[in-house]
């Protein structure tokens, strides 16, 4: 097979700076202008290396007694007088990295363009639906959360600021995407942020109802925090997909780091506040309009018996608070 192809000059990250077709052998590479491939690198000799066919017809790179030599790959490898080249082989002369690729070099499959309108998140309909859902939820929350007489105008106007913040948030991510990817992904960011808000609403409602029905489950709030953390991580993961060139794995790491950091901060501040003294008693009793028959209960006697645990908790606190005897 004729080993015709390209000699490519690469930068340190592997990006192609220059590409030169090989249509005959030998090819000379060096700093001098009579070379087929001219390299502007002070560490490269005027005539540094020749690409040619050996006796058996295989392609090789041969050092032309250069000062700094020929090395395989890149970096500080041993210099070689001669090097067999296959399609994709990299070698270094002076500070310059070169790569040989044959015309029939195998290619990666074509990537699907996200802007072709096939993305779920990119659909303006989905974005509009998600946005309206958020607005409706905010209105509903405002309505159910007020215990005074309200007007439609009042209900609709109240969540406007929150709603505008959603668009500002999506806009900032879009801007980041424009800078990094040179693309606008506004609908995607609106959809992602909206779904996250809806999910927060849902998890909050579920947590309240669970706590109302099962106040005896001790670590219910931990599950709530965990759920919120997952939503947060998903949010960051989704935004990064449309605002960075990070690979899937890196995005996952970034998303969970951000989420874990925020949860960690909230835990730490919670812990710091817990040890602070306070005269306030917090009644955490949640009540919901549910038929009494559906509410699991315990007898007053058992409640009173179980309060013994409260006593031992207080005993521990009192021991801690006691001034140390001299």
């Amino acid at each position: 097979m004729a080993p015709l192809g390209y000699i490519e000059v690469l930068d340190s990250k592997g990006n192609v700076l220059e590409r030169r077709p090989i249509d005959s052998f030998p090819i000379h590479i060096g700093r001098a202008y009579n070379n087929e491939v001219v390299i502007d690198d002070p560490y490269v000799c005027p005539a540094h290396v020749a690409i040619e066919l050996d006796d058996r017809g295989s392609l090789i790179a041969r050092d032309l007694n250069s000062v700094n030599g020929l090395r395989l790959g890149s970096g500080r490898k041993k210099r070689l007088p001669m090097l067999a080249l296959n399609s994709g082989s990299q070698f270094q002369i002076g500070h310059t990295i070169l790569r040989y690729r044959s015309f029939d070099h195998a290619l990666a499959p074509t990537l699907l363009d996200r802007e072709n309108g096939t993305s779920f998140f990119g659909s303006p309909h989905i974005a509009a639906f998600a946005g309206i859902m958020v607005f409706a939820l905010l209105c509903l929350e405002g309505f159910l959360g007020s215990v005074e007489r309200v007007t439609i105008a009042g209900i609709v106007s109240e969540p406007l600021v929150t709603f505008a913040t959603l668009f500002l948030w999506a806009g900032l991510w879009t801007l980041a995407g424009r800078v990094i990817l040179s693309r606008f992904y506004f609908f995607e960011h609106v959809t992602i942020a909206s779904f996250a808000i809806v999910a927060f609403f849902a998890i909050n409602a579920v947590a309240e109802w669970l706590e109302f029905l099962f106040p005896f489950i001790p670590a219910l709030w931990v599950a709530g925090v965990f759920g919120a953390g997952v939503i947060l991580a998903t949010l960051v993961f989704g935004h990064l997909r449309f605002a960075s060139m990070m690979r899937r794995r890196s995005r996952l790491w970034a998303a969970f780091s951000v989420s874990a950091a925020l949860i960690g901060i909230s835990f730490i501040s919670d812990y710091a506040n817990r040890s602070k003294f306070s005269n306030v008693m917090e009644f955490t009793g949640i009540v919901k309009p549910l038929d009494a028959a559906w509410v699991p209960t315990m007898s007053v006697d058992r409640f009173v018996e179980n309060s013994q645990k409260l006593k031992s908790d207080l005993e521990r606190l009192a021991q801690k608070a006691k001034p140390t005897q001299p």
């Binding site: 106040p215 003294f277 008693m281 179980n306 207080l314």
Partner: peptide, 9 residues
């Protein structure tokens, strides 16, 4: 400080 326990009775 206060410590509380909540149950449905």
């Amino acid at each position: 400080p206060f410590r509380c326990v909540t149950r449905n009775l």
